[in-house]
């Protein structure tokens, strides 16, 4: 913000962790001091105690959610990257499909969910289908956009050195698209987690999202927050892993280009969560 160089600035990581610590502390202190009713926000220690006490129930729920996430992730990510690569590299496909996919992306896909439960039941299948669709389209768009940013001059240079079609793909197109694909994977994974949890909250009999809804209807706040905390941790863990992979896979990029993956983030993650309220 300041234009003149400050003599000392605390390191960004330290500031970030301080903010996290302050928030956790507030989570503990505010309900205990009576500033916030424990019904709205049970103290952190109580929430953690609930997780420990009911660990079997939470572990079961988490396992269900993880399996659904993993399957939906493989489908959405694999399909999204393959379709995105095809659409990004073939002009005809791009003209035909891109407007369609962009429009579908704008539709709040959560309206499909009731239909999916009718078709697939309220078990894991409908969650996987919904989360898969939810993660698929943004991944297609991100990958297609990324493939198109490959500099055609790289291909000309490789051809001048005698590269055949297979070598062009293997040694130029694939390495050049790795950063994009990794960013796509991260985006896809985050969306898939949102999709699974939201669909579990809407209609289901198992999973971590289901626990949120069930305990909310009986006003058992510590159990609700315990589930929320686990979802947050799950997402953070995934995001951290994906980010690490991204950094390793895109080490050759100058720093300012790595920021671009943030711009590919979903426009509004709350659009899917809103109907659940």
């Amino acid at each position: 913000m300041r234009s003149d160089p400050a003599p000392w600035r605390p390191p960004a990581t330290a500031v970030r962790w301080t903010i996290v610590a302050v928030l956790l502390l507030a989570w503990e202190i505010l309900p205990r001091s009576g500033a916030i009713s424990p019904l709205f926000l049970p103290p952190l220690s109580q929430t953690l105690a609930v997780i420990v006490a009911d660990r079997a129930e939470y572990a079961d729920a988490l396992r269900v959610t993880l399996v659904e996430c993993a399957i939906a992730f493989v489908l959405a990510c694999g399909g999204g990257i393959v379709c995105g690569a095809a659409i990004g590299s073939v002009a005809l496909l791009r003209r035909l499909m891109l407007p369609l996919i962009s429009s579908v992306y704008a539709v709040p896909i959560v309206i499909l969910y009731p239909v999916l439960t009718v078709w697939l039941g309220i078990g894991a299948m409908s969650k996987i289908a919904f989360a898969g669709i939810y993660g698929f389209f943004p991944t297609v768009l991100a990958t297609a956009a990324g493939i198109r940013t490959i500099d055609p001059n790289y291909l000309v240079a490789a051809r001048s050195m005698g590269a055949n079609l297979g070598q062009l793909m293997l040694r130029v197109v694939i390495p050049a698209s790795i950063p994009t694909v990794l960013a796509g994977i991260r985006l896809c994974g985050v969306l898939v987690i949102v999709g699974v949890v939201v669909s579990e909250m809407l209609t289901s009999t198992a999973g971590i999202g289901y626990l949120v809804t069930r305990y909310r209807t009986v006003l058992d706040s510590p159990h609700v927050f315990a589930a929320v905390l686990l979802i947050v941790l799950l997402t953070l863990l995934f995001d951290l892993t994906a980010r690490l992979a991204e950094r390793r896979g895109a080490r050759w990029r100058p720093q300012d280009q790595a920021v671009e993956s943030f711009r590919a983030a979903p426009r509004d993650r709350t659009e899917a969560i809103a109907p659940a309220e």
Binding site: D151, Y154, A157, R159, M161, P175, A176
Partner: peptide
Amino acid sequence: GPDPLRVGVVFQEANLFPWL
């Protein structure tokens, strides 16, 4: 066609592969 054993090419933009 391209024949790198007979003809080497240097382009305007260096065209190096940034990942190598």
